[in-house]
Design a protein around this nucleic acid. Sequence first.
DNA 1: CTGAAAGCGCTTACAG
DNA 2: CTGAAAGCGCTTACAG
Lengths: 339, 339
Amino acid sequence: MRVTIKDVAKKANVSIATVSRVFNDYSDISDATKNRIKKIAKDMNYVPNLAARTLSSKTQESIACIFNRLDFSTKAPWILEVLSGVYQYTIDVGQKFVFYVTSDEIQNEKTYTQFCYEHNITGAVIGGLTMNDPYYHEIKVTTIPTVIIDMEVDNKFVGTVSVDNKKASEEAVDYLVSLGHHEIAMINGKRETYVSLVREQGYRESLEKNNLMIKKSMVCYTDFEEGAAYEATKVLLRENPEVTAIFCVNDLVAIGALQAVKDLRLSVPGDISIMGFDDIPLAAYVNPTLSTVHQDLEQVAYGGAKLLHSIILKEERESNKLFLPHEITIRESVGQAPS
Amino acid sequence: MRVTIKDVAKKANVSIATVSRVFNDYSDISDATKNRIKKIAKDMNYVPNLAARTLSSKTQESIACIFNRLDFSTKAPWILEVLSGVYQYTIDVGQKFVFYVTSDEIQNEKTYTQFCYEHNITGAVIGGLTMNDPYYHEIKVTTIPTVIIDMEVDNKFVGTVSVDNKKASEEAVDYLVSLGHHEIAMINGKRETYVSLVREQGYRESLEKNNLMIKKSMVCYTDFEEGAAYEATKVLLRENPEVTAIFCVNDLVAIGALQAVKDLRLSVPGDISIMGFDDIPLAAYVNPTLSTVHQDLEQVAYGGAKLLHSIILKEERESNKLFLPHEITIRESVGQAPS
DNA sequence: CTGAAAGCGCTTACAG
DNA sequence: CTGAAAGCGCTTACAG
């Protein structure tokens, strides 16, 4: 039998209210009883039942991390970085951390609000959402404190955190242009994903700013995976032989592109320069090593958790949008445009 | 205001007991009322409060995944694989999934039993434990259904799941021997980690079986990280110049060793053969590519969750120990012993 | 500083 | 097939 607050109260000859106060760090308890009860509780192996606590207090101060879908590539463990960043924040501020995974099924069964109510979630950092997820549309109008990773939403209850994907992409393409590239293609991800959208915007703005033509056939979409990127690159280069540089929506895609270029017996960066995004571990190991946009998702997630906390506490703040720094990381896969 | 079972009951003109029965799929409810109540509940946006449910039913059928420490290398995202394997099992059988992280602090504050009671955990798959963790010793005698990843324990309430680390290591070293290597070193991980222990056992058994000398100076310990392995390898090769092959406790260590050998201007596998363990994504990308022992931790975790479920349900089963298959994966880093 | 009591939102014997 | 009622283990005004 597990020991409850009653057992402790009885043994200590106090009311359960007193025991409860001790465990909730109420200040108006004499140190004597406090210590006595703590000792007794410890000896009895007592721990408060979280479910009971949550139920009676109505508000469990916890920070949730929610992922939509747990699909991941071990090559690009960004979920882990996000998880870890949120977790670390909760540790640093002594908040309770909870983790949930949703799925398409869950999204169809119950609303985001319902999901949060069901799990007594005060606020959540949420990742892995795409623009056609029901939860994305709901979050645009929710009143539940929420922070979305890598997505922007205008709602005072919702924060958004990421690197400045648009600006970073623009810089990355600017860099290609600065090396003399005029025919720059982009291998993008899924259309429904927000980062695909903004990274493409950055790509377009760079081209426009530099007075370069934006050709429709030079942007193609993939599912963010190596294999799809490999095929897409082959098609793209066949149809656009003038291309000398490819900006990729992420490193996994870039690695697929790299392989495709090599298999076409073209050289990287001699014939084709390739630029990635994310700086996953593999980026420094592929051959040639990958130039890319470095971002620290653990820091992004940490910042997201902090922002969420601030929203929950209804603190004053300048903005609900937080951009963390990125860095263009130069390695071997990008070089001068062939003359 | 969130809607509760009372609101639904009132609107439907039934007792809360009836609503509760509908949501728990009791069979003795007329289809008419059942559907009527479901519709009303849906229209009202009702979802049962999990905390209340847990509290009153005393037993929430959920499968927990617990990690001790959330420290990870993005290069070796095994935590994610375990998480995903357990999660996938719960999806497949329709069980609730919960995820918790413990820390040294938590281990010192409350016992494993207390932790599980507090969170109303029926059973847990637990990873990341070392042999000097308090929870490890407690789990040896716990009565809470538990499955440990990559560790063996004799307790009918506890299952253990992994590849056969000892056998796999023995095979890996056998393979080195078969290529003519007689002076085989091992760069091991932490002494407190169970896999270090058993993988070393496998290494020793192979040497013994093949009548090769086991020299104390030829096994050294690291913290499982690249950097430490790099240094250890340099020292080891300086002190044991006769070494022609190194068996590494995991791939991260192997990659560190690889770099050290290269920096010593020795060739891999010309002068020194290197064998890893795990087959992380990087293994196929380093130069030379890494020969290693492939394991599928997602499958291991999936099997672990299944075993846990069986323990929770008190099903008959042959054994509480589950070994999943591994595979010696040959790449470039291992070759014939230099003559 | 401490207790009695209501209440959080459910489940589940017990009765009918 | 359905309801009344006790109870799960806590928290928190209210009172003193």
